[in-house]
Amino acid sequence: MSSLATGVGRVLIAVYGILALAATGRSVVQIAEKFSFAPFSYTLSAIAAVVYIVAMIALIVPGRFWYRVACVTIVFEMTGVLVVGTLSLIDRQLFPDLTIWSYYGMGYAFAPLVLPVAGLWWLRKHHRAAAGVEPVRRGATDDAARSAE
Results as ranks from 00 to 15, higher is better:
V29D: 11
P62L: 03
P39G: 08
R146I: 11
A38I: 03
G85N: 02
L82Y: 03
Y104S: 07
L98P: 07
R10C: 08
V83W: 09
V29G: 06
W66P: 12
G63C: 02
Y42P: 06
V51D: 05
A144L: 14
F37T: 14
C71H: 02
T73K: 04
A5M: 04
T141Q: 13
Y42V: 09
V69R: 06
A38F: 00
A131C: 12
V69G: 10
I100K: 05
S147G: 07
Y16V: 06
A145E: 12
Q30R: 04
F65R: 13
Y52N: 10
I31W: 07
G85L: 05
S27V: 04
S41E: 02
Y108K: 04
A70C: 01
L113G: 13
S102I: 05
D143T: 14
M56I: 06
A109P: 05
V54F: 10
V8D: 06
L123G: 01
V15G: 01
M1T: 11
L44M: 15
V51Y: 02
I13M: 02
S45H: 01
K125A: 00
A20N: 07
F40Y: 14
D142A: 15
S88I: 01
V136T: 13
M56E: 13
G119Q: 03
V75W: 04
V28F: 08
H127S: 15
D97E: 15
S27P: 05
S36L: 12
L44T: 06
A109D: 13
V75C: 09
L19N: 05
R138A: 15
E77C: 12
A55R: 06
A14T: 12
G132K: 07
P62K: 07
V75A: 07
S102H: 04
W121N: 05
D143R: 15
G119V: 06
A20P: 07
R10S: 06
W122S: 04
A38D: 00
E77L: 15
L12H: 00
A144V: 04
S2M: 14
G132Y: 05
A144D: 09
P112R: 12
G17T: 11
V51C: 07
L19C: 11
Y16Q: 04
G7T: 01
L59Y: 15
